[in-house]
């Protein structure tokens, strides 16, 4: 049975694996306009030096990430993809975004941490799987992380 999808959400953490995920998504869909790239930022820490003394705000952060997302989409041949930047817990935000945009598929790379890193860091992919409203395709890691 062929997999028919019209809206794919790809979470982006700007790792090499994110770029690979865009490439895979483009193989599935017909046009980049069906692609949604989302980056979830951590909540701003009100006691960080950048907030207390510098000019870091959610607006400045969103601008920077949007620029980086645009560049990544362009570099990966996905110009025209929808770009989204949100604040919160990555797994939940991604699932929530997919729900709001009635996505058919979430395509997410797994960093596949092992041992200590796995024990302490947990996994965004795991949380997306638990909360996703649609099918989830988890890409296996290809590097040696």
């Amino acid at each position: 049975m062929a997999l028919h999808v019209s809206t794919v959400v790809v979470p982006i953490d700007f790792s090499i694996a994110s770029a690979d995920a865009i490439e895979t998504a483009l193989e599935i869909i017909d046009s980049p306009s069906q692609l949604h790239l989302i980056h979830v930022m951590l909540p701003l820490e009100t006691m960080s030096p950048g907030v207390l003394l510098g000019d870091i705000t959610d607006v400045s952060r969103t601008e920077k990430v949007t620029t980086a997302l645009k560049k990544l989409a362009y570099d990966q041949g996905a110009d025209g993809a929808h770009l989204a930047v949100t604040v919160g817990t990555p797994g939940l935000e991604i699932a929530d975004y997919a729900k709001r945009h009635e996505a058919d598929l979430i395509l997410i790379p797994s960093h596949g941490y092992h041992g200590m890193k796995r024990l302490f860091l947990g996994s965004v992919a795991e949380r997306v799987l638990r909360h996703a409203p649609c099918r989830v395709l988890v890409l296996r890691r290809t590097d040696n992380e």
Partner: peptide, 14 residues
Amino acid sequence: LAMVYRKVRPDGTV
């Protein structure tokens, strides 16, 4: 050393 090995996130925070 902290500067050498810091991570600059895409949102500009460090």
